[in-house]
Structures are given as structure tokens and as C-alpha cells.
Design a binder for these strands. Structure first.
Lengths: 123, 123
DNA sequence: CTCCTAATGCAAATGCAGTCGCATTTGCAT
DNA sequence: ATGCAAATGCGACTGCATTTGCATTAGGAG
């Protein structure tokens, strides 16, 4: 990642603009509004680079598969609206890890996925 | 699912005996201790049948991919030991869904994945 | 402005979970 | 004991996310 390219900017801008995790495909579509020629392979190559550089994080959503989000976010949960299929970043942590951890185990990390309807879709 | 076959029994017994969610591949390996000829396609066909009958549940683990578990379990979390790579069913729920849900949203369901080391591996 | 090489676009290729067609086996009702 | 449809085993095949080979384009140091 030594040169700055319009496609890499477009990918990062798309991620920042959306403010929510997206699939590689959605991300490609969104970034194409900036760079129309943007190719899938380029997106994947840049995602790999950006993940390596600690700027992007890849997660696997149990219902939606692989999603990409900016890495400079504090710990948060993910809410999947089953109507509009968007995933929202929910700041904060409502899990009591001490209670969640069985005796003798040590929990280093965790993920929480919420499912339901977002405010827009309930309107 | 009208006839009882040794392979279907082997699959269910493997799931019961292990007491934890497993990949189709691990499940096949385990069930083969009962029915050596057991084929992958048969495992998948039976899993589909059993899921349709509400006896088995399929889940996608963010780090381990698709796993299968018995469906007659109460709500629980999943603990992934990163040393032995086993997934444990953790009974109970240490998530406060009211706190976890943003204003205006409605949460119908959720999943919690814990990561760390199990009691055996910490020994 | 030039040149070197990183980065891109394209299309073909991977790897993996799961599925399908078909010949053969096997529950189980009669 | 018989027969038929369900179930199995096998190997080839899908679909999807991602990767790779290669020719071309384009940052940016000099």
C-alpha cells in the first residue's frame, strides 16, 4: 500500500459514508459511484491490504456472511434488520462477560448479533 | 423421513453424544464410528430432513462456519476455545436485550459468541 | 518529463459447503 | 417371504466468496 489510488479512496470513502458494515459486493457497488470502472478483484485486493494495515476489519455475520467495516471503532454489537437487510453498528456493550463465562473458562473476546426491525422499518 | 435408518440414528447419536455443535465434516467423522460407510451426501440429506423436522438447528459460527446442533436446547450462547477449537453450549443468557436495543428498534432474537480458552485448555 | 513498479481490470481458476443423478440397497407394510 | 418406494453411496456438479495470472494503466521519485 505505497501509492494512493482513486479506487482505494473510493472504497474507504464508501465505508465511511455508509457508516455500517457491508458485503464486498455492496461495497463495490457503492464505491463505483466514485470510480465506475472499479473491479471486484481490486476491491478484494484493497480490502486485504487495508485489513493488514489495521484500517478495516472483516467479520462473518451469521445470516449475511462476510461483511467489512472500519477498524477504528470501539467494541460494539451488530443489529440486523430483517426487513431492510441492513446491519447497524450499535455502540456500547450490554453483555456481562463475567456472568456469561462458565467456571474455569477464560473469555478474551466476544461478538453479539441482534435481529429484528430497525426504526425506519417499524415507522 | 418415514423410515428409520442406521445412518440417521448414527447422526443423531453423534450429535447427542458430543453435546456440542459440530461441522458437517466432524459430524460425519463421528457418526462413522457407528456406520463406517456413511457418506457426506447422506449426512447432508439427513441434516436437511432433521432441520425441517425441527430436531436439528444449523448455525453459522463467525470463525468456524456452519455448525449443527440439536434443536431441543433452550436459548444459550456459544463459546469457542481457540486452543482446542471446540465450541461449547453455554446455558443461560447474560445479555440485557433492553439495554442492547437502540431506541426505536425492536429486537426479536440474538446470538452471542464468546472466544477464549476452555477449562481443559487452561489446566 | 521519464521510468519503474505498484495497482488495476479482466477472465479464468480456487476452495469450500452443499446438492444432484443414478444405480443399488434396505426398511417395512402386506 | 415379497415388493416397492425411501434411503444410501458415489462421483460429478453447483454457487458463492475470494484469488490469481497477465497484460495494461498510472502514481510519484528522480
Amino acid at each position: 500500500m505505497q501509492r494512493k489510488t482513486s479506487q482505494r479512496n473510493a472504497i474507504l470513502d464508501a465505508l465511511r459514508g455508509a457508516g455500517r458494515p457491508m458485503s464486498a459486493e455492496d461495497l463495490t457497488g457503492l464505491a463505483r459511484t466514485s470510480v465506475a470502472s472499479l473491479n471486484r478483484a481490486t476491491v478484494y485486493r484493497n480490502l486485504r491490504l487495508l485489513i493488514g494495515a489495521g484500517r478495516v476489519r472483516r467479520l462473518t455475520h451469521p445470516e449475511l456472511g462476510p461483511l467489512y467495516e472500519l477498524a477504528d471503532l470501539d467494541h460494539h454489537h451488530h443489529f440486523h434488520c430483517r426487513l431492510c437487510d441492513r446491519v447497524f453498528e450499535i455502540p456500547g456493550c450490554a453483555l456481562d462477560v463475567r456472568i456469561a463465562t462458565p467456571p474455569g473458562f477464560r473469555t478474551d473476546d466476544h461478538e453479539v448479533f441482534l435481529y429484528g426491525n430497525c426504526a425506519d422499518c417499524r415507522g
